[in-house]
Nucleic acid binder design. Structure first.
Lengths: 137, 137
DNA sequence: CATAATGTACTAATGATAATAATACACTAC
DNA sequence: GTAGTGTATTATTATCATTAGTACATTATG
């Protein structure tokens, strides 16, 4: 598995955020384990045909979020989950995002049980990937 | 209840999107019922001290989403839920947003049951407001 | 019919930001 | 020392949110 990050340049979602999200999901799903090394800034930029600054920006955010640690000279690595924050602000932001989804779902005409089912279904996929074994190179 | 929309100008969330979200949530929670009239573009803009174009933009999006119907000359009204779409693209977008929340929650160190509990808790608040009676003027 | 109120359309200008570009610097591994 | 790594800096371009001002079309009211 050389490269699993795929960007959509024309999207309304900025490229650096697309990278942040995909790396985040990979970590959440266990496809990236603690200590795993992310692609080098220049290498990833080269493969995605984007500017190194854009990748560097994504990595900086990932580091501020606590998902990765960077060591200048050696690389960027998936951080120890125990070191991640989980403070009140994080929880509130999560609640806001949940509210947004519920609002959208209900206004689409979905019933409560439909939304919960959908939520559990997506969660299953995360957990399954987690246990299903890590596809390390 | 003269005005329930509150914006945060300095936010990273655009003002027109803040309006869209708040109106959407109000409809989802039943604080706005079918046929209810939204504030006039110029009036709301005046009260929020923003440009009428910004409000108009929000209303245009709400209409494209199917949440409201607009009649030039009379005003903007909450639309009939039966007329709203719910196509595959909507469901996919919802799934993507759910994935984002799950990713963030798991990476914060939350357990599956914690996230589900949080999700149900927020959902309760939506439903409760819905049944709890409409506070019409 | 006349007037006011409504949503819509258009053009222009400003400020913020995403992204690219080209360097240069600092640290680490071999 | 050399190569590979992340970081910092400055400049430039393009896009977009927002404001601003104006004009138009439709509807409600009297």
């Amino acid at each position: 598995m050389a490269l699993w990050i795929q960007i959509t340049p024309g999207s309304d979602e900025p490229i650096y955020l697309q990278i942040v999200e995909q790396v985040g999901e990979a970590i959440a799903k266990g496809q990236l384990a603690v200590g795993d090394k992310l692609p080098a800034v220049r290498k990833l930029a080269s493969e995605l045909v984007i500017n190194p600054n854009t990748v560097a920006r994504a990595y900086t955010i990932l580091e501020q979020t606590g998902l990765v640690t960077t060591k200048t000279g050696s690389g960027t690595f998936v951080a120890d989950p125990a070191l991640r924050s989980k403070d009140a602000a994080d929880i509130n932001m999560l609640a806001d995002r949940i509210d947004g989804i519920l609002s959208r779902g209900l206004n689409l005409g979905l019933e409560s049980q439909d939304i919960i089912a959908m939520f559990k279904d997506r969660l299953e996929k995360f957990i399954k990937t987690r246990q299903g074994g890590r596809q390390k190179k």
